[in-house]
Structures are given as C-alpha cells and as structure tokens.
C-alpha cells in the first residue's frame, strides 16, 4: 500500500470522525430549534433555547432505568439498535465534505432503508411489553410512516436517471463539474417528498404519539430512544439538504495545503445555515400544510404526489430537451 493511499484513508477516517461528531452533537439543537419554529408559527411568543432539548435528554439519561418486565429483553435492545442504524445512516449522508469511508454506499435506497430499520426498531420497543396504549400508538405510527417506501423507490429512480451512479457522493461530484439547473426542480421535489414522508417532528399529534410510545421506558433506554428518533428526523433533513444544495459540500483534496481548512469551515457554516432553513421548511410544512387529525393520510398522499411530480417533470424536461 502506498503512502498516498494510506494518507487518503487517514483523511477519510478523520473526515468521518469530524462529520459524526458534528452531526451527533447538533441533533438535539436542530430538533429544539424546529420545535421552537413550529411553536412560533402557531402563535406562541418565546425566545429560542437551543440547548433545552439537550438538557431534557440528559435529564432522562440520568434517571434510574426502569422498564416493563414483559418483553424486557426486546425493549433493552431495540432503542440501541435504532441508534446503531441511525448512526450508519449518518455516516452515509455527507454534511460538509464527501470522501468518507462508505461514500460509494450512499445510495438513497440504502440510507432510506437504514432509517426505516431504525424507525421500525423504535416501534418494536413500543410493541414489546404488550400493553394497550403504547402498542396501539406504535401501530398507528408505523401505519402512518410506512408510505415512505414508495416515495423512496420513486426518489431512487429519479436520482438514478439524473446521475450515473445514483449516490450522493456522485451527485456532489457532478454538481462541482456540471450545471445542475436542469434537474434542480425534480431533485427539490424529491427532497420535499422525502421530508414530508419521513419527518414526523414538529406536529402536536406526532409528538403526543411518540411520547405515548415511550411511556413504559425510563432512564438511559428512554433517552437513547428519544435521541434516535431525533436523529432520524435530522438525517432525513440532511438528505433533503444534500439533494437540493449539493454544491455546498466540498470535495477534499489529498494534497497538504495550509488553507485547506478554510473551505471546510465555510462548508460547515453553510451546512448550519442550510439546516436552519430546512428546520424552518419542515416546521412550515407541519404547521400550515399537513396538520390536524388526518395528517398521516395527507402526509403520505402529498409525499407520493411530490415524488410522482418529480418523475413527470424529469421526463417532460427530457422530452423537451
């Protein structure tokens, strides 16, 4: 193995470590800001407190661990399984730079499948004790969120037609060398569809459902389950952001240069701004478009419509071109 490839691998590991640390630390911050934005849009007047959600999670972590004896073996494992699946998905979705290990696996279908697995693990944690309320709520949640799969298939097909290899790393590389304006609207529609179908955060009904799902857990397991749920929402938003603004992600250079950190820091700052925008968009969608009692059906229908429209626009654009 040459020293060049060793340096490339070291750099990939370093980038992956920085990326994971950045995302994992900021997850509760984004969720706190999203909730604050949704509350402000619903008419509440208060100042944002970005660390409030972190404090809630830490408080839950420090509590004594208690779980229902029925299905205890399953509830002890399921939240951690969700966390692991979410972390793999985080590793595959670039935030400020590509070139991390596993970049060739960053297919939308792989990422979506991992997020779906984490989602189902959380639902299983609610179903395992066999109690009435968490179980029925878990089923309601899974029935409402299951329509992400057709959206994912359509999104992957649209992305496969726009790009040669269909991965996010390929999208970023292409965005640096080619004009993306032709496919920007279909990609934005796909991103919107994924966010509408995947993120259930920011809505009152969804929050009630998710708290009912976890009401038989306390202590570290509960904190991990809540964190994994927030992580899923943030990864969906990151995925949508990468589809809409792939130019904001830098391609790392192996050559040692002193000023290599400057574009990296700029990309991190850009990522933060874009995530703020994404939080605002999700809050607006939740408050103004898909709220109310029958939000699950509306969510699925709107997401499917967006995904089909993306395909139609792509085909129409090609036909005219």
């Amino acid at each position: 193995m040459t020293s060049f490839s060793i340096a490339a691998r070291m750099q990939a590991l370093l980038l992956a470590g920085c990326h994971m640390a950045l995302v994992m630390v900021t997850v509760p911050v984004w969720i706190g800001l999203l909730r604050w934005m949704a509350a402000v849009m619903e008419g509440e007047r208060r100042l944002p407190d970005p660390t409030a959600h972190w404090r809630t999670l830490l408080h839950a972590w420090r509590q004594v661990g208690v779980r229902s004896a029925a299905g205890a073996q399953v509830t002890a494992v399921a939240p951690w399984l969700a966390l692991a699946a979410g972390m793999v998905a985080v590793l595959l979705v670039p935030s400020f730079s590509i070139g991390m290990p596993g970049g060739d696996l960053s297919d939308v279908l792989v990422i979506g499948g991992l997020l779906e697995m984490a989602f189902l693990a959380l639902v299983v944690a609610a179903l395992a004790p066999g109690l009435a309320r968490p179980g029925h709520v878990g089923l309601r949640v899974v029935a409402g969120g299951i329509m992400i799969q057709p959206v994912m298939l359509l999104a992957c097909a649209v992305l496969g037609m726009c790009l040669p290899d269909g991965t996010l790393a390929g999208l970023v590389r292409q965005a640096h060398v080619a004009d993306m304006n032709l496919v920007r609207v279909p990609l934005a529609l796909v991103a919107g569809a994924l966010v509408v179908a995947g993120v259930g955060e920011g809505d009152g009904t969804t929050s009630r459902l998710s708290s009912a799902m976890l009401e038989d857990l306390a202590g570290p397991d509960r904190a991990v389950a809540q964190y994994a749920r927030d992580l899923l929402a943030v990864v969906w938003m990151m995925l949508a952001r990468d589809l809409i603004w792939p130019e904001g992600i830098v391609e790392p250079d192996i050559l040692p240069r002193a000023w290599v950190l400057v574009p990296m820091l700029a990309a991190v700052a850009l990522w933060a701004v874009h995530m703020l925008l994404a939080c605002g968009c999700v809050a607006a969608i939740r408050v103004f478009m898909v709220s109310g009692q029958r939000h699950a059906g509306w969510r699925a229908g709107l997401a499917l419509l967006c995904a089909v429209m993306a395909g139609v626009l792509l085909f129409a654009g090609r036909g005219m071109g």
Binding site: A70, G71, V74, E116, L120, V123, V124, L127, A128, P129, G130, G135, G138, L139, V142, A143, I146, M147, I148, Q149, P150, V151, M152, L153, L154, L304, V308
Partner: peptide, 24 residues
Amino acid sequence: LALGVGWAVRMLALVRIVAVMLCG
C-alpha cells in the same frame, strides 16, 4: 408506485407478525 405500495404493505405485514407473534 404500485411496487412501492406493495413493498410498504409487505413491511406492515411483517411488522404485524412481529407485533402479534413475537412481541407482547
């Protein structure tokens, strides 16, 4: 779309098996 909806329903059927047979 039909394939994706079928996949989603299949997943729900598997969740149902897990919920009814293995959990509870």
